[in-house]
Simulated assay, not measured.
Amino acid sequence: MLLPQIADEQDADILILCEPYRVRQTQDWITNETKTAAIWVRGAARARITARGVGDDYVWARVGAVTYVSVYLTPNCAAAEFRAKVALLGDGFRDLPGDLVVAGDLNARAVEWGMTATNRRGRLLLEMAVRLDLVVANTGDVPKYRRLGFGDSIPDVTMTTDRTLPRIGRWRVLEGYTASDHQYIAFEVAGETRTTRTRTRHPPRWNEDKLDEIGVCFGGHDFNSDMSRTL
């Protein structure tokens, strides 16, 4: 039950998951057919879901004015197949409603998200981002993937529409134990309205003096806990 515990500690309303160890068969879980991408919307945020959908390598949920997307791109495909997958992602994202926040394990390298060099996969993803007016929200170069004998890497990437980027706050890599070779990432998305839930748990209250804020947790592959994570 490590994932729910971390989500509670980070006060995360939305969890974006890649290759979850276990998938819940509940209405607040959204996953694709291959179970490689999932979104878990928790607590009061569930009442704000206005739309949801599933693609081949991604799932999405619109919560309020923002559409959250979970993406997983396997490292085990040839260059032509990867190019085709990115093209399908671009076509799918273009039709999504609202402002986008895209997070996932993209298995690609790019200087823009903290790597020392950009490879072919990274260039394809950056070209897609330019076409869709998406920008990288990662900050710093702290490794997200750490595995003995394989070195460190940053496969987990957050992108958002340019107009949404100023609303992304406190993007950080969590350094605690995850039962995985991926570290969790957490960030907050400030809303556009003047109504928001305060961070008290029992009972939830609403405070009109603060901006609406959603806590998001996104990550990688949690092999041993109750569910895999994306914070």
Rank of each mutant, 00 (worst) to 15 (best):
N107A: 00
K210C: 13
H221Q: 08
E33P: 02
K144L: 08
G169C: 07
I185P: 03
Y145V: 06
R42E: 06
V59P: 01
K210A: 13
D133A: 14
T116V: 13
V69Y: 11
F150Q: 11
L148V: 14
D8R: 10
R48K: 08
F187V: 02
D226C: 12
E112Q: 07
A179G: 14
G92E: 00
T196W: 05
W29Y: 07
D56W: 13
V59I: 04
A38W: 00
W29M: 02
V130S: 09
I185F: 09
V23M: 06
M1I: 08
A108E: 00
A87D: 14
V111E: 14
R120E: 15
I14H: 01
L89Y: 11
W113T: 01
T50E: 08
Q10F: 05
F150A: 14
D141R: 15
R24Q: 13
E192W: 15
D141Y: 04
L106A: 00
P75T: 02
A65R: 13
R205H: 12
D133G: 10
I39L: 13
V23W: 04
G64N: 00
T158A: 13
R83M: 11
N138W: 12
L15E: 06
E188T: 14
L132Y: 08
E127D: 15
V86R: 08
Y58R: 12
T36G: 10
N76A: 12
L3S: 06
R109T: 01
V142P: 00
A44P: 12
A45M: 07
H182M: 04
N207E: 09
R120S: 12
A78G: 15
N107M: 06
D57A: 08
R163Y: 05
G149R: 03
Q183S: 15
R199H: 14
G149C: 09
C18L: 03
R147I: 03
K35V: 06
D152M: 09
I39A: 02
R197P: 04
P4Y: 11
V102I: 15
D95W: 01
T26A: 04
V59C: 04
Q27I: 11
A38K: 04
V111L: 11
A179L: 10
H221E: 13
R201Y: 10
T158Y: 07
